[in-house]
Nucleic acid binder design. Structure first.
Length: 490
RNA sequence: GGGGCUAUCGUCUAGGGGUCAGGACACCGCCCUUUCACGGCGGUAACACGGGUUCAAAUCCCGUUAGCCCUACCA
């Protein structure tokens, strides 16, 4: 019987929640959901100088907005609480466990204390590098200078190094990249714990060490992470063995690049998930767009073949998700595709599901409008590319135009249509049918085309010749307000 | 420098010895239309380079080039 699938997303709270991180989290989440497993959120905050509680909060809220719920992990806003049987889920709160494991390794001779100071290390490193070689601790040109076999002066604070194998290859089996081999001799005895505060004390353990302790303790079966970690894996693998654990499955997902092919950074525009939220994107669209980078869903073995098939629901993504269908190469982030997806998802959503997402972008008075009005407002603008577009298209419904498009006014609000405008002002039946009937009657009386009156009304009511369908526009503004806005023109 | 990963339209990708190299986004054109959009139809556009293997290479092998990652008492 195979174990229940367990995946984890393990970000460092050193800044905003990066879109690349969200994608990795999404893959972990999809995989866990697909296999009926658990998804863990673990905070890797051992870099004391850069980690903050605020950043942890940002990660939690970003994940939450994205709909990536974790089964185990921190509880939002409660730094000392967590859910799940293997907590705490913040590494700085797991120090006792790390130190115990380090002590075991020390006792077994699998790790040793290193009291080489930063200064002497720097000198040795330079000596090797000026000779044109790679610096490896206690190996190559540095051989014999390490602390591995020297007598340790216990009165001095020391860092702790893990004994790495020499000779042969370290095999990293990877579900995406395939088997990858690293020559053991290209690695060295790396530091698993920083220099402690006092004699004999164990300092804060390092990333590669904590990861292994946590992944084993939390029973992670599938380590799905960015492929920048592929090179770290051969360091971690001997550690799993030292602890006596089987290897989890590894899957290193390719990076997300900016539109120019360079690493995604600030100058490419939005990198933080919060910015995508502010742009008026639906979390479902962000999920789909991110998932489709480096993953091609296959239906019955065939890749999606139409625009219709591109628009996967979460349920479909979960059902279809397969690491076998993931790309090995990095993908560039395509804002156009995201916006298209967003537009399509907005189009096919019901007004009720859209409303909570739209609410942050519209004036507070929204909540006082009747349901019928809100439904009409959303349905009339559901063709926009984003929620912000929708909100913008709805401005006329909340406020009188501050400025008027002069050219449009001149072109459309002609002396010939003003009498018609006056009749529109006096219309009383504001049902769709009533408006249509009244409208057409007016057109006929004045010998006007739909376009003539509709455009004149748009300018008069909205300040510009662009608005939703003319009956919707009238209904959203409302009879009294229509009359008030029209007075100015007749 | 060493080690590792990667390479099909502008972008995301399908294909993996014989295809007119397929789709989606973007772009362009036409149609629809009360504005803006939506929608419908159509079009332009790609196998990084060089060697092999083979009757046949985008596909297999070897190089080259380019990009990225690791090479920290960062994660």
């Amino acid at each position: 019987m195979s174990r229940q699938v367990v995946t984890r997303f393990a970000p460092s709270p050193t800044g905003m929640l990066h879109i690349g991180g969200v994608r990795t989290a999404l893959f972990c989440w999809l995989f866990a959901r697909k296999h009926g497993g658990r998804f863990i959120l673990r905070i890797e905050d051992t870099d004391l100088s850069r980690s903050t509680d605020d950043n942890i909060r940002i990660i939690e809220e970003g994940m939450d907005w994205c709909g990536l719920a974790w089964d185990e992990g921190p509880i939002v806003g409660e730094p000392s609480q967590w859910k799940g049987p293997h907590g705490p889920y913040r590494q700085m709160q797991r120090m006792d466990r790390y130190k115990a494991r380090i002590q075991e390794l020390l006792d077994q001779g699998l790790a040793y204390r290193c009291r080489c100071s930063k200064e002497t290390m720097e000198g040795r490193r330079q000596a090797v590098e000026t000779a044109g070689k790679v610096f490896q601790y206690n190996r190559g040109l540095d051989a014999g200078k390490g602390c591995a076999d020297a007598h340790h002066d216990a009165s001095q604070p020391a860092a702790i190094r893990f004994r790495m194998p020499t000779g042969g290859d370290i095999l990293v089996p990877d579900l995406i990249k395939g088997d990858t081999r690293f020559p053991a001799d290209s690695l060295d005895d790396w530091i698993i714990a920083r220099t402690g505060d006092g004699p004999g004390e164990i300092g804060v353990p390092t990333y590669n060490f904590c990861v292994v302790v946590d992944d084993t303790h939390m029973q992670v079966t599938h380590v799905i992470r960015g492929d920048d970690h592929l090179n770290n894996t051969p360091k971690q693998i001997p550690l799993f063995a030292a602890f006596g654990y089987d290897l989890p499955a590894f899957a290193h997902v390719p990076m997300i690049l900016g539109a120019d092919g360079a690493k995604l950074s600030k100058r490419h525009g939005a990198t933080s998930i919060t910015e995508y939220q502010a742009m008026g994107l639906l979390p479902s669209a962000v999920r789909l767009a991110l998932a489709r980078l480096s993953w091609t869903p296959k239906i019955d073995g065939k890749a999606v073949e139409s625009a219709e098939e591109e628009l996967l629901t979460d349920a479909q993504m979960i059902q279809l998700f397969d690491l076998d269908d993931c790309q090995k190469s990095p993908a560039r982030f395509d804002m156009d595709k995201l916006q298209w997806l967003n537009q399509k998802l907005i189009q096919r959503a019901s007004w009720e599901t859209l409303e909570p997402h739209l609410r942050p972008f519209v004036p507070e008075i929204w909540d006082q409008k009747p349901a019928e009005w809100r439904a009409r407002a959303i349905q009339a603008t559901q063709k926009g590319k984003s929620l912000t577009d929708m909100a913008e298209a709805l401005r006329f419904a909340f406020e009188r135009p501050a400025v008027f498009d002069e050219k449009a006014a001149e072109k459309f609000v002609t002396p010939a249509v003003k009498p018609a405008l006056r009749e529109v002002r006096d219309l009383t039946d504001y049902s769709h049918e009533g408006l249509e009937a009244g409208f057409n009657a007016i057109l006929e009386r004045h010998g006007l085309k739909t376009k003539d009156l509709a455009q004149a009304l748009r300018v008069a009511l909205c300040g510009k010749p662009v608005s939703p369908g003319i009956y919707d526009t009238l209904m959203l503004v409302g009879r009294e307000e229509v009359a008030a806005r029209l007075d100015r023109w007749i």
